[in-house]
Design a protein around this nucleic acid. Structure first.
Lengths: 195, 195
DNA sequence: GTCTATACAGTGATAGAC
DNA sequence: GTCTATCACTGTATAGAC
């Protein structure tokens, strides 16, 4: 018979990725040292290198891939498959949940701002491009003109990133929620005009 | 007689701050090592410690102060002293010049996103708060209702930060300019409605 | 597969020569 | 006031014990 999932106190590789992600998110690529990662995961350097033979860079790549996967499942695919109204509702709900109402920053944004971007430019660019494209697409399906839909999609994704920066800078999650509400109203206004 | 400015190949302390600023801006606080700073400034560690006895933290503090000073002179004070129309025109012109049309990120935003924020929370919060307050104030003077002016000021400053993140993430400065144009139109719409 | 021990480059910081 | 030499420490990475 096939073995069922073993009961272990230690982690499978896949279980470590979200833990490592939080270290990169809070400290940035340079700030995320092995000592911080071992402390957070409870795994020694040896075990981490067993999971990620190429070390830190491979960890960060796995983290970026994991995050893109989460957004693919919870936001991008719903944007493609649900009706425009529910799709946007899903996006805003998931965005607020993921970023903890502004209390949690965007790791992709963190990597984008410094030289780390050059190392992971494909993944970073791909994440934002996919988000903008699926969002623009749903707006077009709702009847918004192509150029306006593209601009609103860029403005919305950009606005979320800015709200995360500003909310963290001022230590005020309420600011994030105000910005989200503004962006949401902006989209709804375009949708109601498109009908 | 008093000595005039001496001709020297080496720098005065004040001259080093903008050079150090670019290292922090491009690499982040953790990534900005002494070796990178000595390479950029042409000054040895010994000389840097002569200028900044408390080391890296004092350099970053000086850089933050210098940047806030630049914005105070070129943006915040004009927002307070010029008429609303010219004041906003000045702001957008200086913003595009300072951030090189999206090719240069915001150091305060870089520091805000990771744990560096905790070290310089007062300076980081102060920079954004001052910007939002002076911008909200000019909108109110132009006849925009208090609450709307406050929200638009937050949306605008937040939007600029997001545009910088996204433009760098996608390596596309044109994106920054499109976002700026959108934010500008948004303000002008509020102003024309307030008349 | 997990860990400890180790290697070695790079870090921020200090002391002292000139 | 500038530099080099050196410090103790931490960084990533590797080897090898169990």
């Amino acid at each position: 018979m096939k073995a069922g999932p073993r009961v272990r106190t230690i982690y499978e590789k896949a279980d470590t990725v979200p833990l490592i992600a939080e270290v990169f998110r809070e400290l940035g690529y340079e700030g995320a040292s092995f000592s911080r990662i071992t402390a957070r995961t409870g795994l020694s350097k040896g075990s981490l290198y067993n999971f990620f033979p190429k070390g830190k860079e491979e960890m960060a790549a796995a983290v970026l891939d994991h995050i893109h996967g989460w957004f693919e499942t919870h936001i991008f695919t719903p944007l493609e498959q649900e009706l425009p109204g529910p799709a946007l509702e899903t996006m805003w709900r998931q965005v607020c949940a993921y970023f903890q109402d502004g209390g949690r920053v965007c790791l992709v944004g963190v990597f984008a701002l410094d030289e780390t971007r050059d190392r992971f430019s494909v993944a970073i660019n791909g994440y934002f491009t996919r988000w903008i494209e699926t969002l623009a697409s749903v707006l077009m399906r709702a009847g918004v003109a192509n150029r306006l839909a593209q601009e609103l999609a860029e403005v919305t994704v950009s606005g979320i990133q800015g709200a995360l920066v500003l909310a963290r800078a001022r230590g005020e999650t309420a600011l994030f929620m105000r910005m989200v509400a503004h962006l949401q109203r902006q989209l709804e206004a375009a949708l109601s005009q498109a009908d």
